Simulated scan of single mutants.
Amino acid sequence: MPFVQSNGIRLYHDSFGDPDAPPMVMVMGLGAQLLGWPEEFCELLAGRGFHVIRFDNRDVGLSQWLDDLGDVDLPGLMSGDLSTVRYRLSDMVDDLAGLIGALGLAPVHLVGASMGAGISQQLAVDSPELVRSLASIMSTTSDRSVGQSTLEDPAALAVPPGADRATAIAAEARLHRVIGSPGGETSDEELTRRATVAHDRAHHPAGMFRQLAANATAPDRTEALRTVRVPTAVIHGEDDPLVNVSGGRAVAAAVPGAELTVIPGMGHDLPEFAWERIVDAVVANAARA
């Protein structure tokens, strides 16, 4: 079945490749569904000898939505009021641990992107017995002095709450144009197609804002990352406007023995021109385990 119970909630997942191959779990970022890991990208990893599992985090996609917890007061959050933070990043770490346990996968190769990499980093700190190797893509340590956005107002790029279908799709496509890779131009038609598929599968902005609050209140992991002993690859776009490459450099500096790959022309996405290089880095790191 595509659903499992984990940490008291229901998570949706799918997979690629031989179920008897070493498991590789893909953890996507803020507000993104498992569609953020393109099928073709997952097939590349599966073709290199892994059983690739991707899933929807809580509050997005086909996993359980937590609307009963209430909305986030975003202006209040930005001014330091944490009273409407509905759950923490640690809860999403527990979701991941529960998924691995429910599917009987441990230990796994973990590949996380953006907030998903933060979740993966923390699992490697908290539960090293569950993790065989770690790949952290376009992320940071949650140290607020690194990885800052170079965009003037990232919050302004969010899909407007209550927007109709056409407006929401256009806003999502525009967001990915702004944060995407300048080194590999994706057509407006393709960005609109992806936004349409994601919207029609599961459009849930309230969940994205609850995830945002969880990520925004995550503690600095720098010192904790110094305890990580699994092979670690850190991959970051040199031209990432949402999470500056200094965030990736900080992760690599914190984790003992981590190997850093910086990809010119890559922004805050997984551009097709970089797939082979990303896959090579992930696979080489898994081999170190």
Rank of each mutant, 00 (worst) to 15 (best):
F3Q: 13
S6E: 08
N7E: 04
R10D: 14
L11C: 05
F16R: 08
G17I: 01
P19R: 05
V25N: 10
M28S: 05
L30C: 12
L35R: 01
G36R: 00
E40P: 11
C42V: 06
G49W: 08
H51F: 15
H51G: 06
R54L: 06
D56R: 04
V60K: 04
V60G: 04
L62P: 01
Q64I: 05
D68P: 03
L69R: 06
G70F: 02
V72H: 02
V72L: 03
L77D: 02
L77W: 08
D81C: 12
T84K: 02
V85E: 03
Y87M: 07
Y87A: 09
R88E: 15
D91A: 00
D94T: 14
G98K: 04
G101D: 15
A102P: 00
L103C: 04
L105S: 14
A106F: 07
A106Q: 03
V111H: 04
G112A: 07
S114P: 04
L123A: 01
L123Y: 03
A124M: 07
D126Q: 11
D126K: 14
S127L: 13
L134E: 08
T140E: 06
R144G: 11
R144W: 10
V146L: 11
V146D: 02
S149A: 14
T150C: 12
L151N: 09
E152N: 13
E152H: 13
D153R: 14
P154M: 07
P154Y: 06
A156D: 11
A158G: 13
G162W: 12
G162C: 10
G162S: 01
R165S: 15
A166M: 11
T167Q: 15
A168Q: 08
I169G: 03
A171D: 10
E172C: 10
A173M: 09
L175E: 09
R177C: 06
V178I: 15
G180D: 11
G180C: 13
G180N: 10
S181C: 10
G184E: 14
G184Y: 14
E185H: 14
S187D: 08
S187C: 11
A195S: 09
T196H: 05
H199R: 06
D200K: 10
A202G: 06
H203W: 13
A206W: 02
L212F: 15
A213Y: 00
T217S: 05
A218I: 07
D220F: 00
T222V: 07
A224K: 13
V230C: 11
V230T: 09
P231Y: 06
P231C: 14
G237C: 08
D240T: 05
V245N: 02
R249C: 02
A250C: 05
A250F: 05
A252S: 11
G257E: 12
E259W: 05
V262Y: 05
V262W: 09
I263V: 13
M266R: 00
M266Q: 01
G267Y: 04
F273S: 13
D280G: 09
A281T: 11
A284E: 15
